[in-house]
Design a protein around this nucleic acid. Structure first.
Lengths: 251, 251
DNA sequence: AAGTGGTCTAGACCACGAG
DNA sequence: TCGTGGTCTAGACCACTTT
């Protein structure tokens, strides 16, 4: 189990010997280009054919990458027209969770406060990073983020834990982590007493529990959970619509 | 644009001349088997190879179907082991929306009240079904469901509008409708005054707006929206976890 | 007509889990 | 070792949009 190489350069190429499958490598490259401003929202990406040529992979592999990114809300596919960089992605995404901002005029200031930061032995004897952080919105605690990442996969994780990004974002953008779609879930729960205190919640108030797990060889053992105050979050499924018009007017 | 044939028989076969793509036909067959009790939760499905033989399609097509169903939470894929019927699916699903039931010991009694039920001319001149229903939980209105379905696709829709199933369920199970993953969204909105009255909500209370659209040739023009009281619903992303251990107490 | 993404095929090799 | 699902290839034809 070799560690995953760090970050993708702008002109990165696909490495056939990497532990990351080709589609995940290509995904990381494209995310780097999207986040780096290479493709502003609305901009068309190179065609599938062109991506095949440029990165030396087959069309099915390119499509696996593009479908994955479209499912994550980062790309928009239009038959007959092309694939386009999507709008949105303004806040640090917590996966399918996004902060409720609609009610407020001003975007809240977000930061993470580290509570725990160590390595430990997982049950199966593998060394893992254990991380616990509290997400604050304008200084008010709104979510607890917990992460478990095998050291063998991502040795230098702590160095990249800058405090404006969610762990999910870091793992995805920097290391190409892919969470199987079927291994993501959001459910309503009652937080434990310590967690409720961390989030300054009244006993009995509901929370949303997001859970993401990696089950592939190259993601195995990775798990991220986010416990979020239900009154401060909404779940964004896939992606927000282009524009919200007449939300309740029949078609 | 031929109408989509109705319902799939247990021993249905793939029709290469159908307007539905093969993967969508196979999906409808498997949904019929799953809903009909052919594969109780936890039961392994036939292997991909076996499905290829049985339905005469290639493995990539079978995988497209199984991946789609897994993404919808109906199947569980386990490398090296097999594909299994998933648990869950107890309530009428509204797509990614599921009624919050955790707060209550007892499952609420659900039914739909029809408000509108007619055909009209869509903007582009195609005839469409227009449907409006109110979902009630124990008699209390909790969501407004609106549907627009081209008559050419599904001529006999009203006959199938039995009142315990959501429109999404009907379209998916009976007609094999597929909503592109990237065309589903859930956002928080403020309902219009009439809708707020329908749902017995106080002004200013938030609601969740689910929107599903079909953009393929064989789903084109189909749109389902569900406006749901935010205090009565949660969003279930993909599927609930097998069992909830650790950080918090499940509801 | 040309180029795009959507569907589909028939192979291949691999990692995984179980006997 | 064997059967499973995961990844990947190199083609093909189609529907869609624009020129």
């Amino acid at each position: 189990m070799e560690p995953i190489p760090d970050v993708a350069e702008p002109d990165a190429a696909i490495d056939p010997t990497s532990p990351l499958p080709k589609y995940a490598q290509l995904r990381r490259i494209l995310i780097g280009l999207l986040d780096g401003g290479g493709f502003p929202p609305g901009t068309p990406l190179p065609s599938e054919q062109e991506l095949c040529r440029r990165y030396g992979v087959s069309r099915m592999t390119v499509r696996q990458t593009l479908d994955l990114l479209a499912g994550e809300g980062r790309l928009l596919r239009r038959p007959g027209k092309g694939t386009f960089a999507s709008h949105g992605r303004r806040h640090p995404s917590l996966g399918p969770l996004a902060l409720v901002t609609g009610v407020r005029r001003r975007e809240p200031h977000l930061d993470f406060v580290r509570l725990e930061h160590r390595t430990a032995d997982s049950g199966s004897g593998t060394r893992v990073h254990l991380l616990t952080r509290v997400l604050r919105a304008d200084g008010e605690p709104v979510a607890v983020e917990r992460g478990c990442v095998p050291v063998a996969l991502v040795p230098e994780l702590p160095a990249r834990m800058w405090d404006g990004l969610s762990l999910t974002q870091i793992l995805v953008a920097a290391f190409g982590m892919v969470f199987e779609p079927a291994e993501q879930s959001v459910v309503a729960v009652l937080p434990s007493a310590p967690d409720a205190r961390l989030l300054d919640m009244r006993p009995g108030s509901p929370a949303l529990l997001l859970r993401q797990r990696g089950t592939r060889r190259w993601t195995r053992g990775t798990e991220v959970t986010v416990l979020a105050r239900a009154d401060r979050f909404q779940v964004r499924f896939v992606r927000p619509p282009e524009r919200l018009t007449a939300p309740t007017t029949p078609l």
